[in-house]
Design a protein around this nucleic acid. Sequence first.
DNA 1: CAAATTCAAGAGCACTGCTCTCGTTGTGGC
DNA 2: GCCACAACGAGAGCAGTGCTCTTGAATTTG
Lengths: 226, 226
Amino acid sequence: MSAANLRARVRAEMTEEIKTVARRHLATDGANLSLRGVARDLQMASSAVYRYFASRDDLLTALIIDAYNEVGDAAERAAAAGTTPLEKWLAACHAMRDWALANPHQWALIYGSPVPGYQAPQDTVGPATRVLLLLGATLGEAYRNGLVREREPLSGGFARELEPIAASFMPGLPPRVVADTLSAFFQLCGAISAELFGQLNNSIDDDRRGFFEYQMRSAASLAGLV
Amino acid sequence: MSAANLRARVRAEMTEEIKTVARRHLATDGANLSLRGVARDLQMASSAVYRYFASRDDLLTALIIDAYNEVGDAAERAAAAGTTPLEKWLAACHAMRDWALANPHQWALIYGSPVPGYQAPQDTVGPATRVLLLLGATLGEAYRNGLVREREPLSGGFARELEPIAASFMPGLPPRVVADTLSAFFQLCGAISAELFGQLNNSIDDDRRGFFEYQMRSAASLAGLV
DNA sequence: CAAATTCAAGAGCACTGCTCTCGTTGTGGC
DNA sequence: GCCACAACGAGAGCAGTGCTCTTGAATTTG
């Protein structure tokens, strides 16, 4: 019993150690993570790593889930510190950007182009939607408190597709709020990716944070948040 | 003389053929382009390809420049067909999205996460900014024709950083127009990448085009375009 | 025509992900 | 306490990669 727990614990520690070294490799060597490289760093045979991760993609998946949860944690923590919905909104956005700037390769892993041939398994969709749900909850709270500008309802096919989503994730809220949440989330990701992937080079160098905040305030106002 | 031209022409044709096969590989096999693979398809030794491209990165760079020019062409052509600035704006956005949907891997090449260890050379910045400049020109034209809502001027450090850019690329226009152009461009890229990289799965399936247009209309209105 | 340059091909190096087999080590049931 | 069994680590090996070097043929140039 306790022996079994011991072995399981050793396995868990080893798994975590592999992920830690892999994250370090990711941070220094870029996105082409070498399984043999992390095995070398751990002074073990490359084949031994396969006892813990069935393939390189499996290791990447584990890193991706962790990364999603890290940004999710950071954003939720930052939002919790704010008082008004707009404060929470901006805090979550800044937390996400700060995390991305601190962990650019992990950001690329989750919000950049999908890794060649890699198909995200179902395990990732839960952690992946945390920030989106946080933005939605913030906007929903504002809506219930009358802090969202009245807008004309959506029209078009996508509006009808959003109705069941609004009903299940944000009950009582019009589909337009869902649409704006999605749009703002994409704008958030776009702004961060653009800055991170060098699209801002030679234009804004010093006050990128200020420009980012300008964009996120715009996104909030676009969503009707006053 | 003519012989020299002939040899140069053969070389150009060969270069183009390699790029074509590489593009086909990119479209089918995903982003991990194998130089040996395209050499096999061309029935030549892998070492022979190095007569035309010094490295795999050089080949990728050539493909990236071509891709930038393809989206640039498509967007400019679409914008030219529109009459009002808003029409041109939306046409350019849709053209970009259509091209991305038709060439997802090339899109990932230019607007996804940078390839591991790859540093974009200076040759790419010109083609890379074509769509951005097109959006800026459209917005600038609208501004000169009084079709842009009056907004309060920008404040903050990034506004001062944008002034020289406004002066050189959009003379006579306030920095806020430059900021909104940049922001809209990032929103455009973000919306397309999100759709392309699967962030819209299980939410909007049928009318993605409609949702995209909703977002781009929002971006235009955010920029003050009436 | 001879010299010089360009080109294609092949061998080879160091690397990768992954599989298989082989001993070893630790674990649960009797 | 012993024994079968599962988990484990290591090593060899396979097929693939980017890239370099050398060799020989073809083509352009003086």
